[in-house]
Amino acid sequence: MTQPAIEIRNLRVTFAGVVRAVDGVDLTLAPGEVVALIGESGSGKSVTLRSLMRLHPPRRSKVEGTMTVAGQDVLAMSQRALADYRGATVAMIFQEPLLALDPVYTVGEQIVEVIRRHEKASKAEARARALELFQKVRIPSPERRLDAYPHEMSGGMRQRAMIALALACRPKVLLADEPTTALDATVQIQILLLLRDLQRELGLSIIFVTHDLGAAVEVADRIAVMYAGRIVEEGTARDLIRGPRHPYTIGLLKSRAEGALAKGSRLDAIPGSPPDLAHLPPGCPFAPRCPLAIDPCRADRPPPIPVGPGHTARCIRTDVSPTLLSPASRSDAAPA
């Protein structure tokens, strides 16, 4: 097997000494693979993503484990190597392009700046590259859009500009932090399709953070579901959607309004709320909300259990969990 694009082993991120935002994440991406990280707010998906770029302030956070991206050990890099690595090997797309683009410079200026930071290019060469990128992300009348300020563009156009900015230095890995959350539903689809086309054309590896299962299925080869700082279930997008085995994944799938939901009928929600990351329970962190929880669940953290080829779930009750999918069990799932 070729060298993986990203290899994360036992990543732990602690804030302020007590908040375990990421608590032992393992994740491997092959070159050209797209993995979606799914989970609710505070499950550690964005923290994992930012760790890959070492964006957490070293004063207030502790990052442990190993992260290798394109053969480089991320945690061992010097400041100098880190600056070269950010943007050139790995680039990031942010959730809200209006906030992630500097308001006082035109988008063209910002792309030129990034190109010239990493490569010896004249302003004219960099601008020609920026124009090419704008065409690649399918921005209409790209020549003129280069001279537009972020606020002068529509949301979808801004996100395209943000993608162009991220691709400016031909990165191998793209980290997308909820790139479609701030957009209209119709624009979301366009951006997802664009990302997938670009990924195929450029052979990018992408980690795609989202809480939208639909978006994840649209672009990802594999899906990893996160809960309380851990990956609780991981598998191919198809396996995970058709045969989820972790009760949390099942809960997520059932809490979606799928197809025509009859008016007045209630949407299934997962009872309770995520645990306090500063005081995690000793056992499975999902146990307090889980309809299948038994005593051993509360005693020890379950290890990843293989439930199919390339499909694992951190749950000791995967033998019975599929029963949760049947409509009959819906009423049983209610007590909190």
Binding site: M53, L55, A83, D84, Y85, R86, G87, A88, A91, M92, F94, L99, A100, L101, D102, P103, V114, R117, H118, L165, A166, A168, C169
Partner: peptide
């Protein structure tokens, strides 16, 4: 955008 700048090196 400051974090984005840092993320671009």
């Amino acid at each position: 955008y400051v974090e984005a700048a840092r993320a671009s090196g």
